[in-house]
Amino acid sequence: MVAEKYPEFQKLGVEVLSMSVDSVFVHKMWDAHELSKMVKGGIPFPMLSDGGGKVGSVFGVYLEDAGVEARGRFLIDPDGIIQGFEVLTPPVGRNVSETLRQLQAFQHVRNSKGTEATPSGWRPGKPTLKPGPDLVGKVWEVWKTSMAFDK
């Protein structure tokens, strides 16, 4: 649940927007009658309404047959560029921790002005790679596959 981890998104300076085909009136009722019982204070970010799936269609996540949106999650940088997305069919939920990890990695790369890259499974504090001629064929010396996993 993104709402539960919202303070961590805020810490990273990330704005959250949720969107479904439901009307804003239903959003209000869902927040009031269910979500506020799961998350203290209810949903802290704007819940957007996409009646007819017009916006979802443009993002390629509107499922026409069912008339709903897939679980599409887009990470958009301060320049409005999509840095990453993930799209799941409705029955499987996302992993918010992975979203936060990706945001931290994209922010790290952006702050390094592209001089650093984050290898598989990177988390803040783990070593990054500095791509360049000297690194070619030498990644194995500075990075071990075990670093991709959290113990």
Binding site: V14, R73, I76
Partner: peptide, 15 residues
């Protein structure tokens, strides 16, 4: 929201 990072999350439906 330009100038900020945004996580835009679509989902199938309320309730």
């Amino acid at each position: 929201y330009l100038g900020k990072w945004v996580s835009l999350c679509f989902y199938p439906g309320d309730f």
